[in-house]
Simulated assay, not measured.
Amino acid sequence: ELEHIVNRGARILGVGMTEDGAHEIAKRSRGTPRIAGRLLRRVRDFAVVAGDENVDQALADKALSQLEVDNAGLDSLDRRYLSQIAMNFGGGPVGIETIAAALSEPRDAIEEIVEPYLIQNGFLQRTPRGRVLTPQAFQHLGLAVPKRPDAPQLGLFAEPE
């Protein structure tokens, strides 16, 4: 559905769009049509500057990478959030107030913008003790998953059997 939205937006904006270009933009849009439209406009700007008539997968990937939107749809704030917890708090648990202070971002913005997508995609868990990164988050950041003594009780970081 998002690919259709991207293709329709491209027609309205008067930019050529290949099927794989639309797919690349759609997969990085966090499942949100509004974000897909915003990314499309930014990729179109890159295409205009590059002098390309069509947006293909390579152009979309290059533009989105320069915009710091990775293959999972995470932007620089998402990665700062995950890195902060991973590097400074050992993967958690850590409270939201501490995270907000460490990132110099408002608590509301973190809870309403950043965390829902990270939770939906299995990078973050909210526990009674605070936020905890999942092994998937460490893998996405290219970090080793830490061994946690409290893992069996929380059900986190457990080794597959």
Rank of each mutant, 00 (worst) to 15 (best):
Ile5Gln: 14
Ile5Asn: 15
Val6Tyr: 05
Val6Thr: 04
Asn7Phe: 12
Asn7Ala: 12
Ala10Phe: 01
Ala10His: 04
Arg11Pro: 08
Arg11Asn: 10
Ile12Leu: 15
Leu13His: 07
Val15Phe: 06
Val15Leu: 09
Gly16Ser: 13
Gly16Tyr: 09
Met17Ser: 09
Met17Ala: 11
Thr18Ala: 12
Glu19Ile: 08
Glu19Gln: 11
Ala26Asn: 00
Ala26Val: 03
Lys27Leu: 07
Arg30Asn: 02
Thr32Phe: 07
Ala36His: 04
Gly37His: 02
Gly37Asn: 14
Gly37Ser: 10
Leu39Lys: 02
Arg41Met: 11
Arg44Pro: 06
Phe46Tyr: 15
Val48Asp: 08
Ala50Asn: 13
Glu53Met: 12
Asn54Asp: 09
Asn54Tyr: 14
Asn54Gln: 09
Val55Glu: 04
Val55Ser: 01
Gln57Val: 15
Leu59Asp: 11
Leu59Val: 14
Ala60Cys: 14
Lys62Cys: 10
Lys62Tyr: 13
Ala63Thr: 09
Ser65Val: 05
Ser65Met: 13
Gln66Ile: 00
Gln66Cys: 02
Gln66Ala: 07
Asp70Gln: 02
Asp70Lys: 05
Gly73Pro: 13
Gly73Gln: 11
Leu74Lys: 03
Asp75Leu: 04
Ser76Lys: 02
Ser76Gln: 01
Asp78Arg: 10
Asp78Thr: 14
Arg79Thr: 13
Arg80His: 12
Arg80Val: 06
Tyr81Trp: 15
Ser83Lys: 11
Gly90Asp: 08
Pro93Tyr: 07
Pro93Asp: 00
Gly95Tyr: 03
Ile96Ala: 07
Ile96Thr: 12
Glu97Leu: 06
Glu97Gln: 03
Ile99Arg: 01
Ile99Val: 15
Pro106Asp: 14
Arg107His: 00
Ala109Val: 10
Ala109Leu: 11
Ala109Gln: 11
Ala109Phe: 12
Ile110Leu: 15
Glu111Cys: 07
Glu112Ser: 13
Ile113Phe: 04
Val114Met: 04
Pro116Lys: 05
Leu118Thr: 07
Gln120Gly: 06
Gln120Ala: 15
Asn121Lys: 15
Phe123His: 03
Arg126Ile: 07
Arg129Gln: 15
Gly130Leu: 08
Gly130Arg: 01
Gly130Thr: 11
Arg131Thr: 13
Thr134Ala: 05
Thr134Tyr: 12
Thr134Met: 11
Pro135Ile: 12
Ala137Gly: 08
Phe138Trp: 09
Leu141Ile: 06
Leu141Ser: 09
Leu141Asp: 08
Ala144Trp: 00
Ala144Pro: 07
Val145Thr: 09
Pro146Lys: 06
Lys147Tyr: 10
Lys147His: 03
Pro149Ile: 02
Asp150Pro: 04
Pro152Gln: 01
Gln153Tyr: 04
Gly155Met: 02
Gly155Trp: 02
Leu156Pro: 09
Phe157Gly: 00
Ala158Tyr: 09
Glu159Val: 13
Pro160Ile: 02
Glu161Thr: 00
Glu161Val: 00
